[in-house]
Write a protein that binds this DNA or RNA. Structure first.
Lengths: 123, 123
DNA sequence: CCCGTAGTACGACGAGTACCGTACGACCTG
DNA sequence: CAGGTCGTACGGTACTCGTCGTACTACGGG
């Protein structure tokens, strides 16, 4: 009831991605997903934009294959939601679900990341 | 400047452990350290006790070697502080340093862990 | 001094992961 | 339909990690 819509034939073709239900999200998986610099960077950009972004819009310094891999890890951990929109795959933060499950966690991590970026002159 | 005392011959023998200075703590390392169930369990117990505990007091379901490994990871990530006290090695959470560096992060993770433990009937 | 206890060091092993390249599939546009 | 773009799948490689066992060191007590 919380999430996990039965995917009633999305608007696009018939391509839908498997997402964990809200209740299935494990804290350890979220922390692990966020502990990779590349993925933390993705999540930070996503949070900064506040909207959905396509995979190729992040300008990550890795190949497409690796990019796909990182987005998959984030999706399977329940951190992001992915939806096809034509040929592009739009990525959105699952902030609502995460906040419902672990209030303050995402904001805490994001604030910590911002703080560290500032401290290291990377912000 | 903040921490990293020059270790002026501790009270015990001459055994001191290398800890990262407060400014050297990296968010990714902290998240990675916390993303392991065994280590998250250690940190939760440490936070619940609020005081220093020896390594052997945690009754972890792994061997001594593995226990040593996990405590080392936590120490090198800057999550805990370890001090020798006779033959025992006392472990304490670096809550002050962590809160100074990443306000709300540790509390957020701890709260999330409590919540999940309750939800899964493990608390 | 000898022994027991607490923890370390080192080597090993299996599993997972971050990365790549290439080949492929899905979709839009001409 | 042909071609271009976006992303996937698969296979491979090198590295990390969690775990163990055994041998070892440090400290305290009889």
């Amino acid at each position: 009831m919380t999430t996990a819509a039965p995917a009633p034939v999305p608007a696009s073709g018939g391509r839908d991605l498997p997402h964990p239900a809200t209740g299935e999200i494990r804290l350890e998986s979220v922390l692990h997903a966020l502990s990779d610099p590349m993925r933390l960077r993705i999540v930070r950009e996503l949070a900064a934009e506040g909207d959905e972004l396509s995979c190729s819009q992040f300008g990550l310094p890795v190949t497409k294959s690796t990019t796909t891999h990182h987005f998959r890890v984030l999706r399977e951990a329940g951190v992001i939601r992915q939806v096809y929109r034509g040929t592009a795959k739009m990525n959105g933060l699952r902030k609502d679900d995460l906040d419902d499950l672990f209030p303050g966690l995402l904001d805490g991590v994001l604030a910590a990341a911002d703080r560290q970026a500032l401290r290291l002159g990377d912000g």
